[in-house]
Write a protein that binds this DNA or RNA. Structure first.
Length: 209
DNA sequence: AGAATGATCCTCT
DNA sequence: GAGGATCATTCTC
């Protein structure tokens, strides 16, 4: 299980995001090993990006994003959910890739116990679902993605499928940037699609509030 | 299939 | 106090 090299992470975030598709994430805890393939990601790039949490500058909350590449940036949102990000670019430049969709490869019984859903493609087809299924929480913020607990590796074999892009989901200003990358038609891609009526509606309610 | 709603709580101000 | 890079459930057609 060979982790991605630092030279992989320390590049423009859009390149890293695009190439993270097909890579694998592995989480060890005790005897259990959970693994999956990344099928949907989003890039958040620098203080100039209005959707990036670092848009308002450095704070204890965003500090991990300013750190060296190859770390896990984990934060809490909407009362229930942890979000897992892959920190990119040089130390001091805040950028990260949000992991939104994962295709389960290993430890599926454990995921089912945690998630309690009827269909396997509901196990990990969304950012909050992934952290729940993999057992990732705020305790993991700032730890390395080169192990020992969490390891991100290159794809074991060539992964087929058409790669598509779209605007980012669930964000207000900046949503129009096509910085979401995913495998078209993969069942583990999250359900909320850019451009749907419900998505546009959520934008309106965000503005009203 | 699409739309609406409530859950629920960590982190910073 | 307020703000969320969401999810499951519960409706409606």
């Amino acid at each position: 299980m060979k982790p991605l090299a630092q030279s992989f992470d320390n590049r423009p975030t859009l390149e890293v995001a695009r190439e993270l598709l097909g890579c694998e994430i592995w989480v060890r805890q005790g005897n259990s090993l959970i693994g999956g393939r990344l099928v949907e990601v989003e890039a958040y790039v620098g203080e100039e990006d209005p959707s990036c949490h670092a848009h308002r500058g450095k704070s204890p909350k965003t500090e991990t994003m300013y750190g060296p590449p190859g770390m896990a940036f984990v934060y809490f949102t909407y009362g229930n959910h942890w979000m897992l990000n892959f920190v990119t670019e040089r130390k001091g430049f805040p950028a990260a890739v949000l992991i939104r969709g994962v295709e389960p490869l290993h430890g599926i019984a454990t995921m089912r116990n945690r998630r309690m859903v009827a269909r396997d493609h509901d196990l990990t087809n969304g950012p909050g679902k992934i952290t729940h299924a993999f057992g990732i929480t705020g305790r993991d913020n700032g730890i390395s993605l080169r192990g020992p607990r969490i390891v991100v590796t290159r794809a074991a074999a060539e992964v087929g499928g058409v790669i598509a892009t779209s605007g980012r989901i669930g964000v207000g200003e900046g949503h129009e940037r096509p910085w979401r990358f995913f495998y078209q038609d993969n069942p583990w891609v999250s359900k909320y699609r850019f451009g749907t009526k419900s998505y546009l509606k959520s934008l309106q309610s965000n503005r009203a509030a």
